[in-house]
Amino acid sequence: MIIDAHVHIGTSQFLQIDADAAQLVAIADEVGFERIFVTHVTALYYAMREGNDALGADLARWGDRLIGYVTIPTHRLGQDACDEIRRCVERYGMRGVKMYSHPESPITEASATAILETAADLKLPILGHFTPTECDVLMQRVPEARILMAHMGGQPYALGNWHLAVEVAERHPNLHLDTATSQIDNGMIEHAVARIGADRIVFGTDTPLLDPWVQKAKIEGAAIDESAKRLILGGNIARLVGFKTDAV
């Protein structure tokens, strides 16, 4: 089973994307993804609760294919963000948290800690749009949080440092690396598997921003063994959220 752990739904001028659930499921069918984890761009770039509610409505219809991330656009929402996580889990059955940050509003500000603790308390993985250095700080503060470093170090601005991402992940056993990135460097996946093992690398595509075929080829074309590919392509995220798959 291939599971895409990084997909966006909705309309965003900033990202220049416009995709509804039916379109994303059609893409998933075409590429061969059984389940996709989605975050709503209205929550990401405009109004948190409005976007999460829109995703909740999509989950009601497409719950067999879509899995919801509670989207937290900024840690500066503080307690409201913690409450939103609990609300979306209880009301919509969302299975993870997507946290966004910009270099201009660093996620290492103190208010992020309670949000990470809330997710950890609920055993939700956190897809964090954080730099490797930020992840290093956050994992020291909340080591029980299971963070997926979005873009595998390719943040900010997709000019990546996956070497540093891997180095930081070596220090923190609950830190995972999300492979959704415009970095398609030769040897990147192989290096990560060799240094931290295949079981902390999580496949994502950033659809519909990036091309899912290209992102899938990055894993399938890597010089790693087949069991490692199965873990990366679905087994690991399934384990993190408690799904049963043959790759776990």
Binding site: V31, I184, D185, N186, G187, M188, I189, D211, W213, V214, Q215, K216, A217, K218, E220, G221, A222
Partner: peptide
């Protein structure tokens, strides 16, 4: 862009 890029990615880009 090989060997800087992983060639599988651009092969997939064309094939699909």
């Amino acid at each position: 862009g090989m060997p800087l890029h992983a060639p599988a990615c651009n092969v997939a880009k064309i094939d699909h």
